[in-house]
Nucleic acid binder design. Structure first.
Length: 828
RNA sequence: GCGAGGGUGUCGGAACUGGCAGACGAGCUGGACUUAGGAUCCAGUGCCCCUGGUGGCGUAGGGGUUCAAAUCCCCUCCCUCGCACCA
């Protein structure tokens, strides 16, 4: 539809000039006003009407810490608020929910220190966060607010856990776990960062404990494969793949002389079997004890094991460390390919937790084995030709050719791997295997402030689930939240809660005193949002079918391995049980960069560089804050905060406000654009619309800034132009735009309007200025019709004195004309 | 070490499928209005030479492809993030 154009001769200044300037921009007043209206009218509530197309926008729900919101949180919120508001204007039924991931250690630690119940601390923190978020004008559907510490919520977290238990995916295991010496809790591998606790930075040691585990490894392949089904930024997919860490190879059995037992190893390079000149067991490998009798140097072995045990996983896996190890004297194995007897060692570079806890040493073709063999003078045999194994291990798998390997000689590595696997399978001494780095998930915490694990231990019946109708198992009140010295949960001290009866046999039983990790509640919260008040199921299939999957999920890069993997796992499990309608929870995932302090460092209380959004809102207003958060820089990059930059955004909004002073009257068509600005309007609508979708918020804001500057330079803006500008600016600055919309007298409210469209043919100028180059150097500019034919342009070019000067007396060798872009001449 | 992404003014950052580098904002300089200015408005602002002009040089460094390179190719350096003795 063509946009009508306003004739300036008819358009007179409606407000009569500068002496009648509108009142000053006062964000404090108008922001409160519009927030109240939105709340009263419930305009951002997702509709139960399923006839409209839906759009589910999700942000990571915040952990309500005692420090309150800092300027990092709203980056994601504002971005997704822009998407949510735009989608509503595009006619979607939008779900943009909010809630609280409120279980967790900082609250518990605070409660311990100040002797206040964590529930009270949590409530207080939530109230603060809520007030802060509301002051920023996000279009959340507050009627669907959830809280993971609400028994009505964690009832279903417990329920899902029981499903895992029923299906055998939750199991108890006696195993060495990562234990944070400061928090006194067990940690998942994912929570250990550089040998320290991800949350508190405390030292992590290995401790053998009986723990509840979730069998996420069962879903490794699905979690990997189904990344194909989703639209995540590539970086995130790579991280997920890395973490799952699939590798293909073979398991091979090495027989032990005078024993039925075999040492099983996993190798991705079975082709190098002929080059295996020794074996290495992990110090924890059970064979070390089993074959104690044969081991001549037991004292030495035992000392080494004790040493290894003391080391944290981090120390053990530090790559810079020199290899250590001890031979198991008297204990040997047979290389099944060569038939030779080879020595067996123990070394801590072999991990019990990966593969089989044992490896075959192929020093010619594995860098670690090479280093080990060099140090301990073990034989190095070349079985793949192509490198110099005297200097380093030859690990290339592309161009090497097998040698010294019997039936494999002459083959490429790829062929040899296949042939070797067939040979192993034929002989019954090995088979094709896939291994994953992913480990099962340590799911219990010996802490108070988490969901109680709803199981009861009965002497007779073993572990028995609490019946569904008795859920939730409520956290009992407590005097003291300190874990016991042995690392037991403080719940263990509440004897009248712990002692109960077995739901199966009625006999005496004890409750599980461990609680769930913080990841539990956040693994399914997006499901609850679809039907948050349901007290019969975690969410009805009807609502789930309508709303799932989440259309767009944005969050921090720091959650892309753990939270994303865990929640995908829970979702897939529920999908297999028929409780959710989609195999994947999130259709699209993006990530935002961190906001740093003004000194370029990570914002933290200890560094003293925290910026509180409340102060910004008080001084500049929420709209300025939002505009700045989006304008600050590329959305996916970490960026330092700048108080100066905030001021610039406030100035921009002042200029927007002052457009009221230069508004020209109704004219023949109030919706029209002036000829002068027609192209700019269509172009800006296009740019802003597309930039929002691509999360290029900074350039979208810049485009609107330019446009506003141009209106002030021109000294006039038509109602049609202002109307469109307010619509496209609204998602970023919702309060000022609603207020101006009302003051100028446009119909209804912006939240009831449709998103403006643009006419592609009107986004380009009819007449353009193009550059003229001579021998690659800019020598002039000509203004010509956009699609002018070459000879017409040439004429204009030759009229230019500045160009002719470089052509005189020269021979033109080549001319290149790109319409609308450039006219390039080459001379000799 | 492996994988991914980067290196552009004083700063944050722009630049479509190669086509006038530095949009927009900040800062800075000068001016106007002012009792005042941390308000507002106007002008300037990549570097070098120059009275001005047109001129030369410029996107980490070096080389290449092209009429034309921040953008494509090769080499080197540096930074950020993720993984890291995973057999």
């Amino acid at each position: 539809m063509p946009t009508p154009v306003v004739d300036y001769t008819l358009a007179k200044c409606a407000r009569g000039g500068a002496e009648m300037a509108v009142s000053d921009y006062n964000p404090a007043e108008i922001e409160k006003k519009w927030q109240d209206i939105w709340e009263k009218e419930g305009v951002f509530r997702a509709s139960r009407d399923h006839s409209k197309p839906k759009y589910y926008v999700l942000i990571e729900f915040p952990y309500p810490s005692g420090e309150g919101l800092h300027v990092g949180h709203p980056r994601s919120n504002t971005a997704m608020d822009i998407i949510a508001r735009k989608r509503r204007m595009q006619g979607y039924n939008v779900l943009f929910p909010i809630g609280w991931d409120a279980f967790g250690l900082p609250t518990e630690n605070y409660a311990m220190k100040h002797k206040i119940h964590p529930r009270i601390v949590t409530e207080k923190n939530i109230a603060r966060f809520k007030q802060q978020l509301k002051s920023l004008g996000f279009s959340f559907d507050w009627s669907r607010e959830i809280n993971t510490t609400d028994p009505n919520y964690y009832r279903w977290t417990q329920w899902i856990f029981l499903k895992f238990f029923e299906k055998g995916l939750a199991y108890k295991a006696e195993m060495p776990i990562n234990f944070c010496t400061q928090c006194k809790v067990g940690l998942a591998n994912e929570e250990v960062v550089n040998g320290r606790c991800e949350r508190c930075g405390g030292e992590v040691i290995r401790k053998v404990k009986s723990q509840w585990m979730l069998r996420i490894t069962e879903y490794a392949q699905k979690l990997l494969d189904d990344l194909e089904l989703v639209d995540y930024i590539e970086k995130v997919k790579i991280q997920q793949r890395n973490w799952i860490g699939r590798s293909e190879g073979a398991e091979i059995d090495f027989s032990i002389p005078n024993s039925d037992k075999k040492i099983r190893v996993f190798s991705t390079r079975p082709d190098t079997l002929f080059g295996a000149t020794y074996m290495v067991l992990s110090p924890e490998h059970p064979f070390v004890d089993e074959f104690k009798d044969r081991i001549a140097n037991w004292d030495e072995v035992e000392a080494y094991r004790a040493e290894a045990m003391k080391k944290s996983d981090f120390e053990r896996t530090e790559i810079a460390r020199e290899k250590t190890g001890v031979p198991l004297k008297g204990f040997t194995a047979i290389n099944p390919a060569t038939g030779k007897e080879i020595p067996v060692w123990i070394s801590d570079y072999v991990l019990m937790s990966y593969g089989t806890g044992a490896i075959m040493g192929v020093p010619g073709h594995d860098a670690r084995d090479w280093e080990f063999a060099k140090k301990f003078n073990l034989p190095i045999v070349e079985v793949v030709k192509g490198g110099d194994i005297e200097k380093e291990a030859y690990t290339d798998t592309e161009s090497g050719i097998l040698v010294n390997s019997g039936f494999l000689n002459g083959l490429t590595v790829k062929e040899a791997i296949e042939k070797m696997i067939l040979w192993l399978e034929e002989k019954g001494i090995g088979k094709r295997t896939v291994n994953y780095k992913l480990r099962d998930w340590v799911f219990s915490r010996q802490r108070y402030w988490g969901e109680p694990i709803p199981l009861v231990h009965c002497e007779k019946c073993g572990w028995v689930p609490v019946p569904e109708e008795e859920l939730p198992v409520i956290l009992p009140p407590l005097e003291d939240y300190v874990p016991t010295e042995t690392g037991e949960s403080p719940l263990a001290k509440v004897t009248d809660w712990v002692n109960t009866t077995c739901p199966r046999c009625g006999g005496p039983a004890r409750r599980e005193t461990d609680t769930m990790p913080q990841w539990a509640g956040s693994s399914w919260y997006f499901l609850r949002y679809t039907d948050p008040h349901n007290d019969r199921e975690f969410a009805s299939m009807e609502e789930l079918k309508y709303w799932l999957p989440v259309d767009w999920y944005n969050g921090g890069m720091e959650h892309t391995t753990l939270h994303l993997l865990y929640s995908r796992f829970w979702h897939k499990f529920l999908y297999d049980l028929g409780y959710v309608p989609t195999p994947e929870p999130y259709k699209k995932r993006t990530s935002h960069g961190m906001i740093l302090g003004e000194n370029g460092e990570k914002m933290s209380k200890s560094r003293g560089n925290v910026i509180n959004p409340d102060d910004i809102v008080r001084e500049f207003g929420a709209d300025t804050f939002r505009v700045y958060e989006m304008f600050i820089g590329a959305f996916d990059q970490a960026i330092p905060w700048s108080q100066q930059g905030v001021k610039g955004c406030r100035r921009f909004l002042e200029k927007v406000w002052k457009l009221q002073d230069i508004l020209v009257g109704d004219g023949p068509s109030p919706e029209g654009y002036s000829p002068e600005f027609e192209t700019a309007m269509h172009r800006t609508v296009k740019k802003v619309s597309l930039d929002y979708e691509r999360m290029k918020f900074n350039t979208a804001v810049a485009a609107m800034m330019s446009l506003v500057n141009d209106f002030h330079d021109a000294g006039r803006i038509t109602r049609g132009e202002l109307r469109t500008l307010l619509l496209i600016l609204n998602p970023v600055a919702p309060h000022i735009t609603e207020e101006m919309w009302e003051r100028v007298g446009f119909e209804g409210h912006i939240y009831q309007q449709s998103w403006p469209t643009w006419d592609e043919s009107k986004t380009v100028e009819d007449v353009v200025e193009i550059a003229v180059q001579v021998n690659g150097k800019l020598r002039g500019l000509v203004t010509v019709p956009r699609n002018a034919p070459q000879d017409e342009v040439k004429e204009a070019v030759l009229e230019q004195e500045s160009v002719r000067r470089y052509l005189d007396g020269k021979q033109v060798v080549k001319e290149v004309y790109v319409p609308g872009r450039i006219y390039s001449i080459v001379v000799k």
